[in-house]
């Protein structure tokens, strides 16, 4: 579903990604772990071209994302993204945050969009918050709205960029629970996370990145319990 070939990304002289090859199959949950500055967020942001890539190719559903002829907005409709800082639109009510893209981009009518939004809010456990503004919500609630907002475009893939890193500890679980639910329902997900428990439990595969390359990847049991690489071992010994 997602295929990454020889991906390089530099910011000026700083080389952040140094040749990433990876493939994500449909309904897989991939967790990306690694120290900060390892390039894992950049990797994720390259997938829906929030960063233009320096070299290499990315295919989503067989469509080359980085081809200048590709309609990048068309691709992004199918790839939802959840950010560390939520990035809700503060000037809109929760419901409008969720309906704006289906209305403006999918050309859904308001009634259908609102119906969808209410369903999604129920799903993330915030049915009563439709008319609130983001500033009236807690961090965990905001992130759940952000997930609902991304789901409203009915994406085939969901990208999560450290979705719980900006949350108070007691709110992490409510967001992870929503993500688990999504994973169980068969959403294809790529999750950059520091939540090793989530990676271990929900990841079909876990990828350990360091210094711009994939150091090691495999099923969680193998990666967490029998890491082969010294860098993986060193990282896991610090975080587990």
């Amino acid at each position: 579903m997602i295929k990454v070939e020889g991906l390089y990304k530099s910011f000026g002289k700083l080389e952040v990604l140094k040749g990433i090859d990876y493939e994500v199959k449909e309904k897989e949950v991939i967790c990306v772990i690694g120290p900060s500055g390892s390039g894992k967020s950049t990797f994720l942001r390259c997938i829906n071209l929030l960063e233009d890539i320096t070299a290499g190719n990315i295919y989503i559903d067989g469509v080359k994302v980085n081809d200048p002829k590709t309609d990048i907005n068309g691709i992004r409709k199918d790839v939802g993204m959840v950010f560390q800082q939520f990035n809700l639109f503060p000037h809109m009510r929760v419901i409008d945050n969720i309906t704006i893209s289906p209305r403006k981009i999918r050309k859904m009518n308001s009634a259908d969009a609102e119906k969808l939004a209410h369903e999604l809010l129920k799903k993330v456990g915030l049915a009563d918050k439709a008319n609130s503004y983001p500033e009236q919500l807690s961090g965990g609630q905001m992130q759940r709205v952000a997930i609902a907002r991304a789901l409203a475009m009915q994406p085939k893939i969901m990208l999560f960029d450290e979705p719980t890193s900006a949350l108070d500890p007691e709110m992490v679980k409510e967001v992870l629970d929503v993500m688990k639910q999504l994973a169980i329902e068969g959403m294809t997900m790529v999750v950059v996370t520091h939540e090793m428990g989530f990676a271990r439990e929900m990841g079909d595969r876990v990828m350990f990145m360091d210094q711009g390359i994939i150091v090691e990847e495999g099923i969680p049991d193998q990666l967490f319990n029998k890491p082969k690489n010294e860098r993986t071992k060193a990282f896991l010994s610090k975080v587990l």
Binding site: N48, L50, N73, G74, R76, K77, V79, G80, M81, F83, Q85, N87, L88, F89, I100, S101, K104, I105, A146, R149, A150, M153
Partner: peptide, 12 residues
Amino acid sequence: GQMEAARSLGMT
């Protein structure tokens, strides 16, 4: 992040 979120939702 506001523009990024909007673009990631498929907005032009």
